[in-house]
Amino acid sequence: MNAIQQVFKREFFGYFRSPVAYVVMVVFVIASIGLTWFPGNFFDSDQASLAILFTFFPWIFLLLVPAVGMRLWAEEKRSGTWELLFTLPISVTEAVIAKFLAGWAFISIAILCTLTMPITISILGDPDWGPIISGYIGSILIAGAYLSVCSLASSLTKNQVVSFVIGVILCMTILLMGWGQASQLLYSIGLAREIVEGIANFSFLPHYQTMTDGLIALKDIAYFILFGGFCLLTNVLILER
């Protein structure tokens, strides 16, 4: 436990040592609130809800999370510090978990920076807090799932840019599998309903949407835990090679 704590501390505060982290955070907050206000027609919708914000999150995360996750292992490999890390009394599993948790904590803080939206709404109207809370839980979970993919991608290369690109492509592919339009396309080429639904269910999106609708179901939580667990386990195996 101590090992995880020490590496977590180093990694987490490491984000704040570089200006890039602040830039990423500011861009994320501006992008998510800006998209909600203007393309999302937040004010015209005349609703005291965050449904529009939550629709944009998975798409914004496609850039935010790989930007945060790309350095996790690629940077260690490039600078050679993983040799130092893995000859200290810490297991690969502990290191992977610690780094993942640090990145996840950082992204969660970025997500919580958009809490200004629900606060504003509660001043202007009378929002239903249920879907807002479950939506934020879903957002943090889906960001975690993305990050587990990006951590895995980062362990495949010593180049952060390559790691970023692999992360974006993998996350986008998995995300699109659950997108309504993609499912329509699969129906139109004659795939059976069960197969299309199966593919969609593998995606983050349906599980996330249930949560933004205000429902926290055990199966959705289980999906995120299993998905993240699988990616991180693969990550450990790659590093242990």
């Binding site: 020490q6 501390k9 180093r10 600078s79 810490i90």
Partner: peptide
């Protein structure tokens, strides 16, 4: 290790504190 890889962005104290913590 060869070429002494270190966490460059940390100060010497922070780095030693990290290793000592482990």
């Amino acid at each position: 290790p060869e070429n002494g890889p270190l966490y460059e962005e940390m100060t010497v104290y922070e780095f030693l504190d990290f290793i000592a913590g482990l």
